[in-house]
Design a binder for these strands. Sequence first.
DNA 1: GCTTGACCTTAACCATGCTTGAGGTTTTAG
DNA 2: CTAAAACCTCAAGCATGGTTAAGGTCAAGC
Lengths: 165, 165
Amino acid sequence: MVKVKRQVKKNSETNPTDCGKHTTLSVGQVAKRSGIAVSAVHFYEQKGLIQSRRNAGNQRRYHRDVLRRIAVIKTAQQVGVPLAKIAHALSSLPDNKAPNVEDWAHMSSLWLDDLNHRIDTLIALRDNLSNCIGCGCLSLHHCWLRNPGDTLSQQGCGARLIDPD
Amino acid sequence: MVKVKRQVKKNSETNPTDCGKHTTLSVGQVAKRSGIAVSAVHFYEQKGLIQSRRNAGNQRRYHRDVLRRIAVIKTAQQVGVPLAKIAHALSSLPDNKAPNVEDWAHMSSLWLDDLNHRIDTLIALRDNLSNCIGCGCLSLHHCWLRNPGDTLSQQGCGARLIDPD
DNA sequence: GCTTGACCTTAACCATGCTTGAGGTTTTAG
DNA sequence: CTAAAACCTCAAGCATGGTTAAGGTCAAGC
């Protein structure tokens, strides 16, 4: 890399208290404002979830939009979506451009479906826990918990009975 | 280990089609009937989630109760409980003895609390997704998604506004 | 008896989601 | 101008939850 002479004018893009709409964010600012570690910011960028440009000194400068992306990443993670899937969903957004409402709405509808599915699953699980274990039916052969997905082996005389106790 | 002469009488404990209540299970039988891999059975045993005895040939023999333990492990994992916590909960059960209904009920009540909490979180998340992203309020400064947990940095003039867009 | 499949142990490896460290450069503050 | 803080890259490390491989033993059936 060519070493560039220090620029005389102070670069407002790196001023931590600058509130201008046209400033970019350093990695440290992104970390602080999004509540994740600098290393996580690097990691997400490496994984393609976010993007940056470099300044003359090879330091990352982020578009402010990155904060929303990170908010979405964190949200999706709470829901249990793996990073690879999040990356895929985010990749449908325009690169380095502020996504519009429809862009986000489309993505969120994907999360919503996923979320609803997870919620349904957990509720089913809870009901089964309540009905099955709570009442002692765990010891009965037809208990869902004891035979989830009907994946019992089919051979042998005890195939449909895990443990009659 | 002392090498033991092969026993003359056929050991019914290893007969795959034996349905007697007093038989024990080999690791392969446990794997097949619980629907997990043999390596996973070994892994769980190594982590203290299940236990076995050894026969004369140093092979694992499981009490049939292990199937219920594994069912509980799988259930808890679906709920998102990490193995260490599951191990802790299982450790409250009597070792190598069939737990009674109260034992299971107590454990399941712990899972239930956890489950309910997760369900509540997911539902809150879903509602926020619907209300926040779906309607476009993601671009407003008070959006929960964009400022989760109020963890924004406090310095600078833009601290309470992630990105006014 | 002998072959074959199931089992044994130990150790290394995989994927995910990051963090930590080493060694060096850039930026900022005084 | 200089020192400190922030940043850079690359590599290794950690925790979780297992799987895979290597080299050897045991058990069941013919």
